[in-house]
């Protein structure tokens, strides 16, 4: 198992929102997807995944409902709400600003 990288405070919410942007997904799939896309750098343990999903739901950025999984098991699916989509946009903007600022400080070349 590759060493897991500690996530920056608050970036987990952003990752989940981004992952859910294409369409509804259940919790396990969210974790798998983040892991795959990040090429196994980011591993989201259930200990942080489910509390984060619940937190986002309580904040009204995602909603949940029961549906059937790929192999027809009853599973809880999460999807972005309209407030969630707006939130994702602002979070992305913030992220861009933040990451380019950090890159400047660290003296790395800023990507176009």
């Amino acid at each position: 198992m590759p060493p897991s990288t500690d996530l920056l405070q608050g970036t987990l919410d952003l990752l989940i929102l981004q992952t859910l942007a294409p369409g509804p997904m259940h919790g396990w799939a969210v974790a798998q997807r983040i892991q795959q896309v990040s090429r196994h750098v980011l591993q989201i343990g259930q200990g942080s995944l489910y509390p984060a999903l619940h937190r986002l739901e309580y904040k009204g950025w995602i909603r949940s409902g029961w549906g059937a999984s790929e192999n027809n098991r009853r599973a809880r699916f999460y999807s972005l709400t309209r407030a969630g989509k707006r939130r994702l946009e602002t979070e992305l903007e913030t992220w861009d600003r933040l990451s380019s600022a950090i890159a400047l400080v660290l003296g790395r070349e800023v990507q176009a």
Partner: peptide, 26 residues
């Protein structure tokens, strides 16, 4: 919207078995 959502969850308690089922599914 956030406030309303909070209010909604304050009154409608999510059944504990839902959570168990979700974790079980995982």
């Amino acid at each position: 919207a956030e406030f309303l959502a909070r209010l909604r969850f304050l009154f409608s308690r999510r059944r504990p078995s839902d959570l168990d089922e979700e974790l079980q599914f995982h």
